[in-house]
């Protein structure tokens, strides 16, 4: 079973959000999504300085088998992207909640997000 990290919040589109209450929030895709996609070979991220909107597409994640849109789970300005993951997308498969993070946003608003328990229950993940 794919791992779900307790401290994070999750969107229905399988993005995770790390918010500690101060500063930009970190965003990535869940292990559930990474495992379902298969080996990820290409990732297209929003540009630093651009504005993303909760629930809207802001990039894409492509694996050998399929391609899937990346939805922003929050609204706000992109402050940083993970250049390492652009160069080596396999980081998303290997460590989706750590080195495989995707981008950070100075969030002004959150879309509908689930707790780890809710997300795991809805998607068959393992806490």
């Amino acid at each position: 079973m794919s791992k779900v990290v307790a401290e994070l919040k999750y969107s229905a589109e399988h993005e995770w959000v790390a918010a500690d209450g101060s500063g930009p929030v970190g965003i990535g895709i869940s292990a559930v999504a990474a495992d379902a996609l298969g080996d990820i070979v290409y990732v297209d991220l929003p540009e630093v300085g651009s504005t993303v909107t909760a629930g809207e597409t802001c990039g894409e994640v492509e694996s050998t088998k399929s391609v899937s849109d990346l939805y922003s789970p929050v609204t706000g300005e992109v402050t940083e992207i993970n250049d390492a993951v652009v160069g080596d997308p396999a980081l998303i498969n290997n460590d989706p909640y750590g080195e495989g993070w995707l981008f950070k946003v100075a969030a002004t608003e959150e879309g509908p997000l689930m707790s780890a328990e809710e997300y795991a229950a809805a998607n068959g993940g393992e806490l």
Binding site: G38, D39, V41, T64, K65, N93
Partner: peptide, 10 residues
């Protein structure tokens, strides 16, 4: 469909 990694299998 795959065991661990379809790329590794390929």
């Amino acid at each position: 469909l795959k065991y661990e990694s379809e790329l590794a299998e390929h």
